[in-house]
Design a protein around this nucleic acid. Structure first.
Lengths: 338, 338
DNA sequence: TTGAAAGCGCTAACAG
DNA sequence: CTGTTAGCGCTTTCAA
């Protein structure tokens, strides 16, 4: 069958321990022995058996990334970044899609499938604050997103409040006073929608602009269709507004489309800003100003934290850490001023 | 540490063989013994050690999916479908990104990372027909895409020629005679661009419309920016056209944007059709008519083929198979007729 | 129908 | 500096 340590050892005229030492760069091996072993490895095309190594070491070399679905561009781009970051530290990434369903998210946390990986990077959507206790699992876990705070695990996410405030202030600084919101969630305090709304309110207050709930449109899902529907609803309300802050790019793009169809010019009549800095925001018509929430930093830090926890092997005293990535506003055509 | 077969066996008062039999639904186990074992498993919260199982069985339970990058919506949606299909047959999916780079694609084929998985679903972009021999690997491999045909492996892909022909005929049937192409590749015969161009030519010929190379724009990359650039180039050529066939949705969307900025109305002045049926095609302004190439069927069949090859354990006589998925045209606003 | 025991390929403790 | 050896937890002959 396949070439094993024994074959290499025999070919090099040493014991398997020596071969093992060479492979794991154990320092105390004579240079010529090492060379001989390397040659044998080369010659025989030896590749270590990862299952055996896993069985022995208790590590699989893989981490899981659980997210709602890859068809949502935000998560696809997040996965891209996580895979890249993981590759740099020599880890494989297994992706699990939850569909944003709370039940599936809970199941996933205790599934036998966890056994296949050394740890989990988890971006829940259905679970909420009340489910924090479910995150107290026996394996390394890093939490992403805004569904649960103060949980028992490391948490890596974005500065939602500050970023949303900055986005709103960006519009106000350009003379807009009636900034409509697309994507608010009824009564939500925590969660992306709740936090971004808070940032919006802070910006209004700082600028002395009164809050007008008539220009805040609620929509549970954040797909483009919902942005479009929300904008139709806003237009039907027949209240004045001169800017739109979509709580993500997809919503903003959907809303922008309806605005244009209705005869509004963007940015002349209405400025539009999004959130996420998806690739497509760069190519819309007009191109979309948006908030880059620091996705690659989030991926990088999440993988690093998880790796640390894995290496600490559960017996570290480092308490749960919270990391907030740096955001920045990416200015494009949809908020250009004349 | 963790609960093992031995623990379960002891708790149930049987040998580990019996427990193993129960777990693998080996038929010849007395009902009450089986019940006792199940109870013990439940009680102890036993979960099998996948590494040990892998070491013994030679299977990891994971398959790899290699693709250019998840940031490209087409591949993100493909990955989504593949993960779903794999989950249905109890397999994990490890994603590897190649960036579409030939060197990395070749490396990937013989990487030690292959050892982590039972097989590979491979969607190359940099490799070409001349590299077919590299696909002759010792593990189960299913090829996707149009870079290599008649290779030594199973191949699952779309009906590019027929679909492109149908798309062109769709435009012609709606009275368009000057169908511009965005995304052709200079001198390419095989590959998505080459095949789709062939379908286009077939449609023209069947309709008795002469080919005019002045309305065919070449662009190597298929991002939105390239569609935009291509359309600017086409407009600069100052030749007449009344329709655009973007060789993928992203190109079509980029081209459509430039068209609109230039003052053309879509679909009144120019109809636009794309290829891929990405989610976003549904929400553009106007919504984009496109070809649905049968992505979920491709994923489904790819996973099934690979699983069969894995189970056949290399010693089957089934020759390489080619499966072409069913396509269909999705009609939307960008080709509406007055 | 169930039990005993031999490895799968590797790592690491222990000797030498 | 290098060799011997005992498992990691599981599947699977071979016996009973």
């Amino acid at each position: 069958m396949s070439v094993t340590l024994h074959d290499v050892a025999r070919a090099a005229g040493v014991s398997i321990k020596t071969v093992s030492n060479v492979i794991n760069d154990y320092p105390h091996v004579r240079a010529d022995t090492r060379a001989r072993v390397h040659e044998a490895i080369e010659q025989l095309g030896y590749q270590p058996n990862l299952s055996a190594r896993s069985l022995r070491s208790g590590r699989t070399g893989a981490i899981a990334l659980a997210l709602p679905e890859l068809s949502l561009s935000y998560f696809a781009e997040l996965a891209d970044s996580v895979i890249e970051a993981a590759e740099r530290v020599g880890q494989f990434v297994i992706i699990e899609q939850t569909g944003g369903d709370r039940e599936r998210e809970l199941q996933l946390l205790s599934s036998w499938r966890r056994k296949m990986t050394d740890g989990l990077i988890f971006s829940p959507l259905g679970m909420g604050m009340d489910d924090a206790a479910h995150l107290d699992v026996a394996y390394p876990l890093v939490l992403l997103g805004e569904r649960i705070f103060d949980g028992p695990t490391d948490h890596v996410t974005m500065r939602n409040v500050e970023a949303a405030r900055a986005a709103t202030e960006f519009l106000i600084a350009r003379g807009r006073r009636r900034v409509a919101i697309v994507g608010a969630h009824e009564g939500e305090v925590i969660g992306s929608a709740g936090l971004r709304l808070r940032g919006y309110l802070e910006a209004l207050e700082a600028a002395g602009i009164p809050y007008d709930e008539r220009i805040v449109v609620h929509t549970t899902l954040w797909h483009r269709a919902n942005g479009a529907t929300a904008m139709r609803e806003l237009l039907a309300r027949d209240v004045e507004f001169d800017a739109v802050f979509g709580f993500n790019d997809t919503l903003a793009l959907g809303a922008m489309r309806v605005l244009q169809v209705a005869g509004y010019r963007v940015p002349e009549d209405v400025s539009v800003i999004g959130f996420d800095d998806l690739d497509e925001a760069m190519y819309s018509l007009p191109s979309l100003t948006t908030v880059n929430p620091g996705r690659s930093e989030i991926a990088e830090v999440a993988v690093r934290s998880l790796t640390e926890r894995i290496e600490a092997n559960g017996d570290t005293e480092v308490p749960p850490r919270l990391h907030l990535a740096q955001f920045r506003i990416v200015e494009r055509e949809s908020t250009a001023t004349a």
